[in-house]
Design a protein around this nucleic acid. Sequence first.
DNA 1: CACTTGACCTGTCCGC
DNA 2: TGCGGACAGGTCAAGT
Length: 289
Amino acid sequence: MPELPEVETVRVGLARLLPGRVISEVSHDWPKSFPNVQADVDTFLLKASVTDVRRRAKVLFIDLSSKYSLVIHLKMTGQLVFDSANEHFGAGHPNQSLIGQLPDKSTRVILEFEDGSTLFFNDQRKFGWVKLLPTVEIPNIDFMRKVGPEPLLADFTWQVMRDRLQRRKNTSIKAALLDQTVIAGVGNIYADESLWGAKIHPATLVRSVSDAKIKLLHRALVDVLALAIEKGGSSNHTYVNAEGKKGSYMNFANVFRRDGQTCPRCGTTIIKLKVAGRGTHICPKDQTL
DNA sequence: CACTTGACCTGTCCGC
DNA sequence: TGCGGACAGGTCAAGT
């Protein structure tokens, strides 16, 4: 599911909700969802309090007073939902959130806090994971050493984007955008949306994309990521924020999952194809090879 | 080395 | 309705 805007939305929510809370109990049902824990739970989780919640690309870090951090990847269907206490609204409550309905059959990890609140890690497809690492080790892990620049930071200029993309000059522009070592946080939705914005066919080889087009793509990508954060992310299926609520960016999407509908720019029917092994949505008039 | 293709899982949707 | 296959926001290990 979650790409940069969704993970950032979860981070903002958790950063407001978690700091200061003390972990009192940890449980997990699916070993791969919490692979490297074992005896470390007692030592580095229990009695530890949350000090900070950070994000890099699509990965979240929950820092603890024990000098360890929970490192979390939501992959396709992961959710982190916080339940403040014993406020069990039930399914029909008008807040339309998951709070009060958890845990359910896709709950993989539960963190309970001393004040009675709970953080649920839900993951229908079991691709996501939670790992426990010493906070100081995080900068040294493979992912952090290899991941590309954050596209919403001021130093991510169009020239930086051009130079990063050149690392994959013989592949399609879409595959390059999806490569986390090229640019951090872009996934299938925002790759399609930004390529539509710049009028670039997703299968275009990186080496044949002009500087002028890269400049347009840079603008489109930054704009679409910022808009998606403003809308609380995209909820196609399972994505919800830390309060269990859906994001509304899909109402503003131009092409993603809109095959059969018309291009907002020119009225041509949007089509779906496969590029870089992924479902890909384009306007066939605006985006040509 | 650069690049592409399965595999990891569960659930849903679509055609027969 | 039932059943098979394709597909779903992401990444790896393995293949070419």
